[in-house]
Design a protein around this nucleic acid. Structure first.
Lengths: 151, 151
DNA sequence: TTAAAAGTATACTAGTACTATAGACTTTAT
DNA sequence: ATAAAGTCTATAGTACTAGTATACTTTTAA
């Protein structure tokens, strides 16, 4: 479960989009703005957001005043969903992947001790990523900010 | 935490070396034998075992009748130790790595929600890998074999 | 003492993934 | 009509992966 820059930027952008904005009916945010706030190359971010859109996690509005917005409530989008779109399976090795299994080359999968342990690792990672929503992250951030007396 | 072939082969080899042999004083195993049993290119395995030796996890004996053997008891070698030699840090992102920290580019590390979650992931992975020894894996394998009535 | 077995060390390579960058195109508000 | 904004595809440099290849050293046994 290595987080690539692609995955990192995508997750950061999704978290930005999940932050509570002034109660507009449609809190559309432009690529440019996200890129600036998070110090990301706008052109690179473009590709990433497009991928998230094609995966159904984001919607967009073209033209003047357009931008991106979450396809569902922040409570209903998990980090696991975003991660899998951008960085693929969560499992450290294909033979323990739930979403995209493939055999590795070991003599006997059933009795392979390494596979058992890696299965545990996969489950530990998936437990966290699939049970943490964008809303959870935003909440956690603001808790820390309060504790530190920031903003 | 993606397990490369290098890491996979190395871990598999270490598990083989941890399996209980006839009670010889020094259970030395040759590269060739491990490579055959685990279906690994001998030349590739050579590099991997050498790296593990230079890291102090294996010892070797040159010449006729030589080979590799564990530097310590299987109980005292963890999967985490082996993994880090071959595949580097366990953390999904550098800014949460305990063993080899580096800042990522986020605006503020202290309040970065993504970083907090990735820290949890790192800890979950490290908990498993650093608390599972080669002996544990061997034991688990034989338990499964018994349950299945194999060999 | 010499040949063969075994590990040591380094260099090289083909393929793939990562991290962007670039440019042309489409849609929409004003 | 124009400018703002997203869409789509191609390309490029770099690093990493998974090996291969080759030459060398140490050790044992005949």
């Amino acid at each position: 479960m290595r987080l690539s820059k692609r995955g990192e930027y995508g997750l950061r952008a999704m978290i930005v989009l999940a932050e509570p904005v002034d109660k507009n009916a449609m809190p559309v945010v432009q690529i440019k703005e996200i890129a600036q706030r998070e110090q990301i190359s706008p052109k690179f971010l473009e590709q990433i957001l497009l991928a998230l859109k094609n995966a159904g996690l984001l919607h967009s509005k073209m033209g003047v005043g357009g931008g991106y917005y979450l396809a569902r409530s922040p409570r209903e989008i998990t980090l696991g969903q975003v991660f899998r779109v951008l960085d693929g399976p969560v499992a450290p090795i294909k033979c323990v992947s739930q979403m995209s299994y493939e055999p590795c080359g070991c003599p006997d999968e059933q009795t392979c001790g390494l596979r058992q342990v890696m299965g545990d690792v996969r489950n530990a990672i998936a437990d966290i990523l699939d049970n943490t929503s964008l809303a959870d992250v935003v909440k956690r951030q603001s808790t820390v900010r309060k504790k530190l007396g920031i903003k």
